[in-house]
């Protein structure tokens, strides 16, 4: 997906090209360039939609300093796959809604899309989806992580999230007593 862009184009040509192109170029924190369907980007990401509408897209690669190349590649991959699989205007939203609405189940291809990711790649993608305001991708990735956490013990969770157990032995025993019921299988 990496794009090699010639530099030094005349400013005029660039502006015309920018308006006409049906893709946008995104630049990861480590300087790699990715091209993504403008339509899909605008439809799936509130942040990219805002940048496209506001004209702050850089043809030489719009800087996304918070997103590494691996995660950005997955984001772009997701957008391009989405462009082919879902009719446009189906999932437009103005902001990420952290609400209590029932979750939409991921579709088969979305499941496969996240299933092939490593733990680390998955967590990177959650962050990227959140940063870019991609509600649907956030839904799909959070769903995958929650499935992975289901049935895990506190020890296993500490391992995954790199968390130190800061309870004293006595405190932990007390909480475990209170929450004994929560330690049976899910």
């Amino acid at each position: 997906m990496e794009v090699d862009k010639g530099k030094g184009e005349a400013e005029e040509t660039r502006k015309v090209a920018e308006a006409d192109r049906d893709t946008v170029t995104l630049k990861s924190s480590d300087g790699k360039l990715f091209e993504v369907s403008k339509e899909a980007a605008a439809r799936l990401s509130t942040v990219l939609a805002g940048m496209i509408a506001g004209g702050s897209i850089d043809d030489n690669g719009t800087d996304l300093k918070q997103i590494g190349s691996e995660a950005l590649e997955n984001v772009v991959d997701y957008c391009n796959k989405h462009a082919n699989s879902i009719p446009s205007a189906a999932l437009i939203s103005s902001s990420i809604s952290f609400n209590t609405a029932p979750f939409k189940e991921p579709e088969e291809w979305e499941r496969k899309f996240v299933d092939r990711l490593s733990h680390d790649a998955l967590f990177d993608l959650v962050e990227a989806a959140n940063f870019l305001g991609m509600e649907r991708l956030l839904d799909v990735t959070c769903h995958k992580i929650s499935e992975m956490m289901k049935g895990k013990s506190p020890d296993q969770i500490r391992e995954v999230f790199n968390i130190k157990n800061d309870y004293t032995k006595e405190e932990l025993e007390e909480i475990r007593q209170e929450l004994a019921w929560a330690f049976y299988d899910d």
């Binding site: 049935g151 969770i157 500490r158 929450l179 899910d186």
Partner: peptide, 10 residues
């Protein structure tokens, strides 16, 4: 049940 159990994480 999982959410309550994870109160024990930290």
């Amino acid at each position: 049940r999982s959410v309550c159990r994870f109160k024990c994480v930290s």
